[in-house]
Amino acid sequence: MRVRFWGTRGSIGVALTSADVRDRLAQALLQASGRTFESYEEAHAYATSELDFSLTHTFGGHTPCVEIVVPGDDYYVCDMGSGARPFGVHVLAKQARKPATVNIFQSHVHWDHIMGFPFFGPAYVPGTKLRIHGCHDVLEQAFRLQQSPPCFPVPWEQLGASIEFVKLEVDKPFRVNDVTVTPHLQLHGGDSFGYRFEREGKSVIYSTDSEHKLENRAEAEGFANFFRNADVVIFDAMYALAEAISVKADWGHSSNIVGVELCQMARAKHLVLFHHEPANNDATLEGLLREARRFEELTRGDQPLKVSAAYDGLEIDA
């Protein structure tokens, strides 16, 4: 399975400003002082291999939308945050006018997780099949509500796709083609659900919008079992631990440190920090990644845990 991140920011989308771009350009020019490039390709290769991550990338960007890529014609995607717009562009381009079948798995229906749906191109294409899976009773209501006056000018009834809402049962494995998906109740206001995707011995966990306190052993072990031996865990690491426990306690989100602890308990292989705080710039997010990696080193048992930070456009293999 491959994981493709279309939206990685929590709460609300962000973008680099003109001042940010100028600053990066100036720093890149400084670092390249004295160098000459014969072609765009040569300059691109230099930027890719020699410049710092913080100059050549941005964490972005769009609110949550994560594609789980498996062989076959169907698409699998977690959440319809604003990343659903570029994901939709990708689907339309790949399909080349052939209608798509898209399996959507909703962690919950807070705005940042559904706001991209009205801009999801395939929803307007007749013949497209959308199956929106989730555990909330209000799943369909939430999608219809945001796509009705006065919030949005194109009503639900004008969508060309055939749209089916599929209610899943908590902790009960559900089969879509050759992918097994298991939802798990998480700790978030109004509830959220994580999903465990399994196929051919590989597993990917999508676990966003959950506040893990790890005080209660039974509760922590429940999550560790859900994450058990996962190849990839996409984890809500919105804050630093101090922030998550103090000023932002009970806001429904976790930290990079708790992500490491839970993945170590679960003997997971790769932790991906996700749902980045919109107030954090790229340098701060790089710092949180560096700190999580160091914490993992300090507390490592007999199995190392790889730690990454998601950014819009990142692709990783499970």
Partner: peptide, 10 residues
Amino acid sequence: EIFKLSHFNL
């Protein structure tokens, strides 16, 4: 170091 990594020193 854990205090620093978790920002508890703040």
